[in-house]
Design a protein around this nucleic acid. Structure first.
Lengths: 252, 252
DNA sequence: ATTGCCAACTGGTCAGACCAGTTTTGTAAA
DNA sequence: TTTACAAAACTGGTCTGACCAGTTGGCAAT
């Protein structure tokens, strides 16, 4: 195979496998040329190939950067039907949590197994940010923490899927934060779960990480359900008041 | 804009506007450089960009040619970056299977729990269609069967997510069917797994359905891996021959 | 007419130079 | 000491001309 293709392939693989994360700056062309033992022209041809595929973006005088995956998906554009469904049918919240339970469990498992030093650093950063934020308005940090773990899974499909659900997830996180965190017992429990997830991932314990992450999501889901049934929901961030959310068909 | 981008843009427009037809040979790099008044290096960078986008193909000693599959068709749209990644990096296959294992497990669980009479009827129909189809070309029925179960989960988020991965899934199913089904033991095992999933869902046994579904996907994944390592893959439906697919970062 | 080789294409790679933005930094001025 | 600004030291962008490596076609020797 042509060297240029070989290089572009290797670089892409490097990105996929997590050597380089989205938004991250790539080595300069001259560095790459030296390190990979080829001419700069080749490096440039390889980079243009990746550019054509939307894998990287290049800025004159600054460098090349890994593009955030799934560039086209443009915000709410994609899941807007789901978003609508969500605001119309509170049940969608639990539907999402059902899915999240699986995916986040898997993400935590893989992260504990595959996280690089850089990943661990990012996760740590996200975690401490989460801890230091006002518990009543830390939806964003909360989401960032989970996202950092997902990215550390080094599974592009997983990243893609959860990214597609991002807006929806943010809504549910907001809902749970707004409703759960004001209650001290809830807040403490959730905080402890975050801590244990963090520790398991850092310690490289896949099974534990998965179990705890799933328990966490399940706990949030159950807690929300309980609150809703009690009619004591505090804030409904797009979570309709409609007390009795419909249930899916249930056969006995 | 950079000249290279400019050139690649102009060339692509030329192709799209019909100046160059599919299969047609493009002018040589040296000709383009002269005619467009830029250096050959620039031409090469522009061509690599088009190559990355799949607009042209280049053959050493022969020239560059307009790719057949090009324009307008807009095709499957959403997951095409992932699709590209998949065709280029076999590892993505396993990434997808990792995700599928979780999602299909959950789908089977919910289906067993929530399926209505109509759902059961649909699943039964899909299942018998799968059984009666030639095992060597039943990728479509196979996928339909799984999809019927997903829809019976009555979880719109789950349906949405798996629908977004539809094209990718079809590819993996094709790959597994093509590679696994010709082997009798494999074929029988898979067939038995399908049967047990079917029975568990019909019998309304969520835990069993989930367990079997997950086992099923895991089995396919492991079998594919084995075959790949043995280098005995038969058909590679976009599955690169490259024997040893790279592994994600692994710590320990 | 057939064979075989060479010349003239094609793309692939390299080296080194210089231009053009961006960031860092060190020094001179306040 | 602090601030301002210009030079240096990055970064990517372009050019040149050379040489290597497949492909093809024609011409010469058989």
């Amino acid at each position: 195979m042509a060297i240029a293709q070989e290089i572009s392939y290797r670089l892409e693989r490097l990105i996929l496998d997590g050597g380089l994360a989205p938004e991250q700056k790539m080595p300069s062309e001259r560095q790459l040329a030296t390190r990979l033992g080829v001419s700069r022209a080749i490096i440039r041809e390889a980079l243009h190939e990746l550019q054509g595929r939307g894998v990287i973006e290049t800025r004159h005088g600054k460098g090349s950067f890994v593009a955030r995956i799934v560039p086209g998906s443009e915000e709410d554009g994609e899941d807007s039907p789901l978003l609508q469904m969500f605001t119309g049918h509170p049940r969608t919240l639990y539907d999402l949590l059902e899915v999240r339970e699986q995916l986040e469990g898997q993400a935590a498992y893989l992260a504990a197994q595959r996280a690089t030093a850089l990943d661990l650093h990012r996760i740590t950063k996200a975690y401490s940010a989460l801890e230091q934020t006002d518990p009543l308005s830390n939806a964003r940090p909360d989401h960032s923490f989970h996202q950092a773990i997902v990215e550390a899974s080094h599974n592009p499909v997983l990243v893609h899927v959860l990214n597609g659900l991002k807006n929806l997830m943010l809504l549910t996180v907001e809902a749970s934060v707004a409703n759960l965190n004001p209650r001290e017992e809830m807040r403490n429990k959730i905080s402890r779960q975050h801590k244990r997830i963090y520790q398991a991932v850092m310690a490289g314990k896949p099974e534990a990480a998965k179990r705890i992450a799933m328990t966490h999501v399940r706990f949030v889901s159950d807690a929300m359900r309980t609150i809703e049934q009690q009619g004591t929901a505090i804030i409904r961030v797009s979570l309709h008041a409609s007390a009795t959310s419909e249930k899916p068909p249930q056969r006995v």
